[in-house]
Amino acid sequence: MKLIHFDVINSTNTFLKDNYHNYQHLTFVSADSQTKGKGREAKKWLSEKGKNLLFSVLIKNEKLIEKYKTLSIVCGYSVLEVLMDYGLSNISIKWPNDVYVDDKKICGILLEAVSKQEIECLIVGIGINVNQKNFEEEYAITPTSIRNQLGKCIQLDKFKIDIYSNLISNFKLIEEDYDFYSQLRKYDYLKGREVFALVSNEKKLVKVLGINSDYSLSVITEGKKIDLETGQISFSL
């Protein structure tokens, strides 16, 4: 394991994507602030300097790469477990891997991969709102933070180590084919909800049945049951 920290960087994910060949498996790169923090499909990830946990971890283990679907959702579940240890409640996973408290987003996760003919590495980018109190920008989903949920700030350095440790433990369990599904399905945010989803490039209203054991999302739309593996989920009004 290698730990790297920047005061400010463009993006921890971009740093690892550009330099993955120079670093080993389980290199963690964190930053107090990002100038070009990003989410899915080039969306921005915004964060007040020094208030939150922003980091990326490099995955070069073949088995973890092969099990990227499990890895993706277990990263969310790993964050959920630590948040529970810190006293937060009503935490859930919004498929495929965001972490919510009530109906508010507390953690976003972006997986990126670099491939030539095969996937050469995965980069897991995780942003967790820790001590930020105010969220000034306009957000599609209302954000929250540990500070806002507990009413007090926590020690960011200790929280970082707790998150890193739990990720490493759970990565080992993934390699050992541990059954996470039976645990994390209890925290399925979308289960039973009606949402809009992209189905074959069309936005459709779907009823979510729940996360499947292969981590696809089972939904019903127009009377048919289908399993989603890609695409945006947005909420119905």
């Binding site: 994507k17 899915r40 499909e41 990227y68 679907k69 993706s72 495929p96 891997n97 996760i109 972006l110 997986l111 990126e112 991969a113 670099v114 491939s115 030539k116 003919q117 996937i119 995965l122 981590y215 696809s216 593996e229 890609t230």
Partner: peptide, 20 residues
């Protein structure tokens, strides 16, 4: 070689496809 030619997404994994 190593130039990104496409991006494929699945389960929020954004996969940069580089030319070999």
């Amino acid at each position: 070689k190593n130039q990104t030619v496409a991006i494929i997404e699945a389960m929020k994994l954004e996969n940069e496809i580089q030319s070999a």
